[in-house]
């Protein structure tokens, strides 16, 4: 199944699981048949795309399953992110309309809300309300309204709320059909909790966005993105680095640098 040149094909090497992981990390396109030339995404950095697998042509089993998964993932209802490059990075061509999106950034205020602004704009003008759960600081109504968000449809549970109450609120809001979108800030959540929230979001067909500082390994969330600060562009535009860690139903990974609007 593996390429004949692959070190994994040599049993005498007796590579331990840790070493396999290291190897995969060093050569990410090894068993996914990555072919940067075939990618339809303009990557500024490393690209781990599996959409155009070279193994597809060689009848590779993994390639076939990739193709199947990719086909499935295309059927997820989506909404454009408002950024062309990000739409191309995401396997569904936009934000999923329901489910859990994990946004991981070690530092706050690097442009994480600005990234979601087109989505927030459209969601806030729908009849369902927007719920902001434990944002790190007070939300500034005039600035949100200036960005085009309907703040009369937005409700906040402040940061003083206890963690268990906040998690309960996130779950109830995701289960509810009255809530169009939930934005929640938690420093870290276990995979078990995220799975529960993911199920709640599936039940209510609601989109939840969780802002973390640390990634959760093997997260069952629909989408896991890692944000990083990037230097401003030459013309002074704010930029942000986005790394796709995991997307449900797809093995696609990648990293882009996005120009945020002024």
């Amino acid at each position: 199944m593996f390429s004949p040149d692959s070190p994994l094909n040599k049993p005498e090497d007796n590579v331990s699981e840790v070493k396999v992981q290291q190897l995969l990390a060093e050569t990410p396109g090894l068993w996914r048949g990555n072919h940067p030339g075939n990618s339809n995404v303009t990557y500024l950095a490393r690209t781990y795309s599996t959409t155009r697998s070279s193994s597809q042509t060689s009848g590779d089993l993994f390639g076939a399953s990739e193709q199947h998964l990719e086909h499935n993932s295309r059927s997820v209802p989506t909404q454009s992110t408002g950024f062309h490059a990000l739409d191309e990075l995401l396997p569904w061509g936009g934000w999923p309309t329901s489910g859990l999106v994990e946004i991981i950034s070690r530092h706050k205020a690097i442009g994480e809300l600005q990234l979601l602004m087109p989505l927030l704009r459209s969601r806030s003008h729908q009849p369902q309300s927007l719920l902001w759960i434990t944002p790190p600081y007070q939300l500034h109504g005039p600035a949100l309204a200036q960005s085009g968000i309907n703040i009369r449809n937005s409700f906040v549970i402040p940061a003083q709320t206890r963690c268990n109450n906040a998690l309960w609120s996130i779950e109830k809001a995701l289960q509810s059909t009255e809530c169009g979108m939930v934005l929640a800030w938690q420093s870290w959540l276990s995979g078990r909790v995220i799975r529960r929230l993911q199920m709640a979001a599936s039940e209510g067909k609601t989109l939840g966005v969780l802002f973390h500082q640390r990634p959760t390994p093997h997260s069952p969330a629909t989408l896991q993105l890692e944000l990083s600060a990037a230097p401003d562009s030459d013309d002074g535009c704010r930029q942000i680095g986005i790394r796709l860690l995991r997307a449900k139903g797809s093995h696609r990974q990648g990293e882009i640098r996005l120009r945020l609007p002024r």
Partner: peptide
């Protein structure tokens, strides 16, 4: 204290008290 009737879908925009894009979304207390 919020109105119990669903708000209109078009939100009123700020009327000139704030320059465009100069104030942040998160404020310290």
């Amino acid at each position: 204290e919020a109105p119990t009737v669903k708000p209109p879908l078009k939100a009123p925009r700020s009327r000139g008290f704030m320059p465009e894009g100069k104030q942040p979304c998160l404020l310290l207390p």
